[in-house]
């Protein structure tokens, strides 16, 4: 369980990024972070992963974040990375450089935590199959395309099965099949999942809670129904195509027939038409 208490973050120029946020993420939650700016959702992800003070050393941070009733700052990096894993969008960074095959690269994540070789083989084969990248098993991780590398990086992180998996912009570099495969893996994932993605409608079927960052303030919606109410009533403006997409997707999922004010979000609707999965 992650508890965020009165968390604020101000950037090095004095502009607030997140102000006075308080919420709790429970063990079985699947949380989607919706934000107009990619920066604020990334900062929230870093804060939840306990690395914000290192990635943004000049930002002023207030408030506290607790993981299982212990301050996240007090948990050492070894213990933290065993339980909370943050998958950053730049997959290039996640490739270790010490393995010459994709199979070895993914296996490394388990070798590091002392998993037995026969278990490693089975788990790596399984995740390669799940992400449909078996054909890459013998390839050099340094000679892959951006999308392939991203899939390998995702596999390397998910295979460790941490208690909390934080995915920052996971749909970047992924094709439709890649997104569908990832979605299938996450559906059966046993831990907590936190996803920040500029295309939230992709993950709407997976998420049961929504954190919306609007003008530096955080609002938490505990169900799709409460979020759709806020979206439909323009409490959250729908001018972003991706948010309109989310609204439409949720409306379809919940089988609602309420109309949205098309004059308000016509350009966004136009942009999103055809982009919905």
């Amino acid at each position: 369980m992650i508890q965020v208490k009165k968390f604020s973050c101000i950037d090095e120029f004095g502009s607030p990024v997140i102000v006075d946020a308080s919420f709790t993420v429970h063990n079985t939650d699947r949380v989607a972070i919706l934000s107009r700016s990619q920066e604020s959702s990334t900062i929230l992800c870093h804060a939840l992963a306990g690395i914000l003070h290192r990635t943004h050393p000049l930002h002023k941070i207030e408030g506290s974040i607790f993981y299982n009733d212990r301050s996240i700052e007090e948990i050492d990096s070894h213990e933290r990375t065993n339980s909370i894993v943050y998958v950053l969008p730049n997959s290039d960074m996640l490739i270790s450089g010490v393995k010459d095959t994709v199979f070895g690269e993914i296996a490394l994540s388990l070798e590091l935590i002392g998993v037995e070789p026969n278990v490693i083989r089975a788990r790596v084969s399984h995740i390669l199959q799940q992400l449909d990248i078996e054909r890459l098993a013998d390839r050099d991780p340094d000679n892959l395309s951006g999308g392939e590398r991203h899939k390998v990086a995702l596999a390397s992180m998910i295979i460790r099965r941490p208690d909390v998996l934080i995915l920052d912009n996971p749909s970047m570099f992924l094709d439709v099949t890649g997104v569908t495969n990832l979605l299938n893996i996450l559906r059966n994932y046993e831990g907590t999942i936190i996803i920040a993605d500029p295309n939230p409608y992709i993950w709407s079927g997976l998420s049961n809670r929504f954190i919306v960052i609007e003008n530096e303030h955080i609002e938490v919606f505990n169900s799709a129904k409460t979020l759709i109410g806020a979206l439909g009533n323009q409490i959250i403006p729908l001018e972003l195509p991706s948010w309109t997409g989310l609204y439409l997707k949720l409306r379809d999922t919940l089988e609602l027939n309420d109309e949205i004010d098309s004059t308000h979000c016509l350009p966004a609707l136009r942009a999103v038409s055809g982009a919905l999965p």
Partner: peptide, 8 residues
């Protein structure tokens, strides 16, 4: 790489 478990 710390996130990948290099500090294990």
């Amino acid at each position: 790489l710390e996130m990948r478990g290099f500090t294990a």
